[in-house]
Simulated assay, not measured.
Amino acid sequence: MAHGSGWDGEAVREFVRGAPGLSGLVVSAVGYRSRGVQPALHRGLPSPFLTLIFSLDGPVTSGLTPEQARGDDAVRTDIVMGGLHQRPAYVIQPEHEAGIQLALHPLAARRLLGLPAGALADQIVVSGTDVLGRRGAELHERLLEQTGWEARFALLASYLRGQVSRSEEGGRVRPEVGEAWAWLARHRGAGTLNGLAEHVALSPRRLTTLFRAETGLSPKQAARLMRFEHAKSIVVRGVTEGASPNLARIAADCGYYDHSHLVRDFHQYTGVSPTAWLAEECRNIQAGGHRSGEQ
């Protein structure tokens, strides 16, 4: 179990990385706690993984726009479930918060959630209780009763193993879709749809239909998201190491046509330029708040 923390004056940020097992199904699990932080609006970025958050300090408040997140129609829920999406969610970061955030492989959704990731298509934030049902609500209550990260992660691991054992037959994904996702991941979003379709012995149209039904994204959309995730991870790693990221070099290394192409993707997925996003998130990154499955 890895720990990270950062202090900003009197502010304290703590991030604890757990290992709930289920390799290939759960990409990462991070416990977080902060206090004395200046309230702010946080951008929940799209990624190639599903997001599941169990809040341990009151409801998470979010919206599709900054105005919604700050308004009366904001989404407020103690368990957050997010499907694959292509624009940021906006989350109110209060003065104090705590919880556990999991990144789930989208092809594990049937086994872990009892439905395909495609059923959550473009739903940036939904109540996790609606998806997980009574067992999820009971898990949340039990997590609230614990006082240490180790006990919380143990509870999560037990719950997730139970979900997998109950899924068995209903948790199968078509092998062509599984191999298509693996191919895209190996190529970090590079390659062509025709090349991918040929690899899995399906027509591009048939592959797109099956892939979208399972994940909620087309292969092209998933490829763009994987490429952006890879580029962002390099940017984050550079900031963590105290370096100023060379965006032109990163764009070339990640398969973008040019620097402006990377900037356009940053605008789509974050709502701002790379420089503006880094200015917003620099302290959070340095405290360890951007640990994903690749980082």
Rank of each mutant, 00 (worst) to 15 (best):
G6K: 07
W7V: 14
W7D: 10
W7E: 14
G9S: 05
G9D: 08
A11Y: 06
E14G: 01
F15N: 05
L22Q: 10
L22R: 12
A29Y: 05
A29T: 00
V30E: 02
R33K: 10
G36T: 11
Q38R: 15
Q38W: 00
P39I: 10
G44Q: 14
P48C: 12
T51F: 01
I53S: 04
S55A: 14
S55L: 01
D57N: 04
G58Y: 01
P59Q: 06
L64H: 01
E67H: 10
R70M: 14
D72K: 11
D72P: 11
D72T: 13
T77E: 11
V80E: 10
G83H: 01
L84K: 02
L84W: 04
H85L: 06
Q86Y: 00
P88S: 03
Y90W: 15
E97P: 04
I100L: 05
L102V: 08
A103E: 15
L107I: 09
A109W: 05
R110L: 15
R110F: 12
L113T: 03
A117D: 06
A119V: 00
A121K: 13
D122E: 13
Q123G: 07
Q123H: 09
I124P: 03
I124H: 09
V125R: 03
V126T: 05
G128P: 04
D130S: 03
L132G: 06
G136F: 08
L139N: 11
E141I: 01
T147R: 15
E150L: 02
R152M: 02
L155G: 11
S158F: 00
Y159K: 06
V164G: 13
V164S: 13
S167V: 09
E168N: 13
A180Y: 00
A185D: 09
H187F: 11
A190K: 12
G195P: 13
G195S: 13
L196A: 03
H199P: 02
L202N: 06
L202T: 04
L207N: 09
R212C: 02
R212V: 00
S218V: 01
P219V: 07
L225H: 09
F228I: 01
H230C: 06
H230S: 12
H230R: 13
A231F: 07
K232W: 13
K232H: 15
I234Q: 15
V235K: 09
V235Q: 11
A243Q: 15
N246G: 09
R249Y: 09
I250G: 12
A251L: 03
A252V: 05
Y257T: 11
V263T: 14
F266S: 00
T270F: 00
G271M: 02
V272I: 10
V272K: 08
S273H: 07
S273N: 05
A276E: 14
A276H: 04
A276Y: 00
A279Q: 02
A279T: 07
C282N: 08
R291A: 14
E294R: 15
Q295S: 12
